[in-house]
Amino acid sequence: MKTNVAELQVCSPRSIDEALQQRRDIPGLTPIAGGTEVLVWLNDAKFAGKTYQSLHGLAKDWRYVRANKDGTLGIGALATYSDVRFHPVVKERYPLLVESARVTGALQIQNRGTPVGNIANGSPAADTVPSLLVYDAKLKLKSLRGERLVDLKDFFTGYRRNVMTSDELITEIVLPPPLFMPAQQHYRKVGTREAQAISKVVFAGARSAAGVRLAWGSLAPTTIRALKTEAALQNGADANAAWEILQREIAPIDDIRSTAEYRRKVARNILFEFLNKLANTL
């Protein structure tokens, strides 16, 4: 552990109000759900933050996956990937989410890490975020000032930047009732190996009468919805035309794990694979 933990401040709120007060009063506070990201930074002393808020005391409030009567689904801030992955309603209605939780880290990570943390962390390679984007997820942001609902697709403003204010916490992911038939949904994680891998490219896509959704990870500074490509497909564009547009919506880079060129080619192949799948399930 390269970080000297003795230099860190940690608060562990016992109630939601206490948590929100701390958010308001303590500057630079980094919230921790399962810690699967923050402890990696600390291990490598890659993060300058000195003040942390461990939310484990709020499990009774926030560790839930709840199917609501209005057909929506709520995923609490402390619900783990495993909670989501093995939830019967999620399995039935949101297969992309199940698949993306399954390929996030290994079992040990899935038992600690949370989809809300995955969003808050803001990695463009987040495995569950493209699935949530496809399902039109909304986020409940809460502060002592009140609560607001933000579309996930409007949440990210840049590389690891988002619309949250420093006194807010994400308390829940809200998924509207599902629109898509299982056969018209597709998920792909392209990693460096079969398991326990950081993504080179992530894709979640689906189609229904209401339209096509294409969401990508690791192709831009944030996870993205390819809105222009979606619109073109909606207007009858063929695969090649869709690819022409998608190319302009993505901005892959070379990094330690892969190359921009590879990411571009894989994005093309996955797009074609997805459109083929749709064509075969008409």
Partner: peptide
């Protein structure tokens, strides 16, 4: 120390975890 190798795996409240990533 970064949750990649699993050598530190323990069972915590009946769930499998990497103890290097649990504060």
């Amino acid at each position: 120390g970064e949750g990649e190798c699993g050598a530190c795996t323990v069972i915590l409240n009946d769930e499998l975890v990497m103890s290097c990533l649990v504060p």
